[in-house]
Write a protein that binds this DNA or RNA. Structure first.
Length: 429
RNA sequence: GGCCGGUUGCCCGAGUGGCCAAAGGGAUCUGACUGUAAAUCAGACGGCUCAGCCUACGCAGGUUCGAACCCUGCACCGGCCA
């Protein structure tokens, strides 16, 4: 899982399409090539878990660390209380207690990706540390004086919001100042000279470098933005049935996580292998060859799913869900599977309990989480979109399952559509 | 503080007294095709004890046989003025 250190890590990032825009590229290349650079990326606690969109930053941090640079992972205990303005509408504030809880969770999610030992050990930081004690007067005098309102208004999101019906609160308008302070503070405390972030953060990144230029003219700092990851049609990457693909295994099961990557569209598979995995150019070229000549084999997708699941949930979980996927989709005939294999596979799926006897499939689909209401379940049944043990249900809305459908006298596999599965397990009388 | 405009289903957005569970688009779901892909075509898309009923058009009240639509108050958002 290591890549040969490129001559300059910037070239590797470029090859992986991870460099969208940066401050003076020649200078940045020189800096990265001439010693260990301390850099940071920030993650705001806007929810109980990070999702795969955050992975781009996390993994870019990891790549830079592997190239000998020193990461600071910032979880925004302060910025999370304010909210980075979204183009659409004002955010709803979360309570300090809730945000503090999320900070802890995010820290735990980021830590496994970085190395906290050795000469370029990573450090976790929290911007609440240097903002909680700051008075409003200090803030306005020491920091605010460096910001020109005209420039702040010109930032993309701000002007979008200003021109929208939603408008923008002073709170969110101030966000860029807070993020700029982070960079300045990390520059002072840790000699941090590079901030990385998504291209949608470019305005915030440059606000930080500008602040440092004014407050500490002697410091030379850089910013680097990674591109927005999209699907082939340009739409947002990272959504699956129902919502975001979370890193938290309770929110997105390792099986669902694996499935998400496995279902990657052909048109994007090579891009994603570069962006998200640590495979070398040679390995990716081989997978590309396979994807071109034998797309139906989907070796590249399998490699991506395998790597990502292993990276996020561990080798063991990755093997488990890969085996489960093989068993459940491997040809459809479940009766041929032995109890052990089937039980393991079903164990990765959402579960519902089933009593002996006959049950309306409508109720079963809801109980198993495959339909969000009985109406939804009825629609699915009348559409012919339900399957029991991989066999299409033809009975329409009144179809039932019963003890006779049990596999190994214990389980029933229910499916909605092409690939939403759930397991029913027999429970005592 | 004043005046004007806005608040519609997951999102955007039409509707301005009965024909409205609410046009249209997007998202989503299902089917066909296929490779657990994409594109395409077709159907569905508030809930339920489903030919009916219930809930819903910012919130609360009112007018009316009848309200998303009219009136009053409140909340939030925007614009202009002070």
């Amino acid at each position: 899982m290591t890549s040969a250190p490129a001559a300059n890590v910037l070239d590797e990032l470029k090859w992986r399409n991870l460099l969208s825009i940066s401050t003076d590229e020649a200078e940045l290349r020189k800096t990265l090539g001439s010693g260990s650079v301390t850099y940071y990326a920030g993650f705001d606690p806007t929810g109980p878990s990070l999702h795969i969109g955050h992975l781009v930053q996390i993994l870019t941090m990891r790549r830079l660390q592997q190239a000998g640079h020193r990461p600071l992972a910032l979880v925004g205990g302060a910025t999370g209380l304010i909210g980075d303005p979204r183009p659409s509408a004002e955010r709803v504030l979360n309570s300090p207690e809730v945000v503090a809880g999320w900070v802890e969770r995010l820290r735990g999610q980021i830590e496994p990706f970085l190395d906290f030992t050795g000469p370029n050990a990573a450090t976790m930081v929290n911007n609440l540390d240097w903002t909680s004690g700051l008075s409003a007067i200090e803030f306005l005098r020491d920091v605010g004086k460096h910001f020109r309102v005209g420039k702040m208004l010109a930032k993309d999101v701000v002007s979008t919001r200003l021109n929208s019906e939603a408008g923008i609160s002073y709170t969110e308008f101030s966000y860029q100042i807070l993020q700029s302070m982070d960079f300045l503070e990390l520059n002072k405390r840790y000699d941090c000279t590079l901030q990385i972030g998504g291209s949608d953060q470019w305005g915030n990144l440059t606000a930080g470098t500008d602040l440092i230029h004014k407050a500490r003219p002697e410091a030379a700092v850089h910013a680097l933005a990674t591109p927005l990851i999209t699907k082939a049609d340009g739409s947002k990457f990272g959504k699956s049935e129902g919502g975001a693909v979370w890193l938290d295994p309770e929110m997105t099961s390792p099986y669902a996580f694996f499935q998400f990557w496995l279902n990657c569209e052909d048109a994007k598979i090579i891009d994603y292998l570069r962006v998200f995995t640590f495979r070398t150019a040679g390995q990716i070229a081989e997978l590309e060859e396979s994807a071109t000549s034998r797309p139906q084999a989907r070796e590249a997708q399998r490699a991506l799913a395998r790597d990502m699941t292993s990276l996020v949930h561990g080798e063991l979980a990755a093997s488990r869900v890969e085996e489960a996927s093989k068993a459940l989709f491997g040809g459809g005939d479940l009766t041929g599977l032995d109890a052990g294999t089937l039980g393991d596979a079903l164990g990765e799926l959402p579960k519902a309990q089933l009593r002996r006897g006959e049950h309306l499939l409508v109720d079963v689909l809801v109980a198993a989480g495959l339909a969000k209401s009985k109406s939804d379940a009825r629609r699915t049944l009348s559409d012919g979109g339900a399957y029991v043990n991989n066999v299409k249900v033809t009975g329409g809305e009144v179809a039932t399952v019963s003890t006779a459908d049990l596999l190994h006298d214990r389980w029933i596999l229910v499916r909605r559509g092409r690939r939403q599965l759930a397991a029913l397990e027999l429970v005592g009388e």
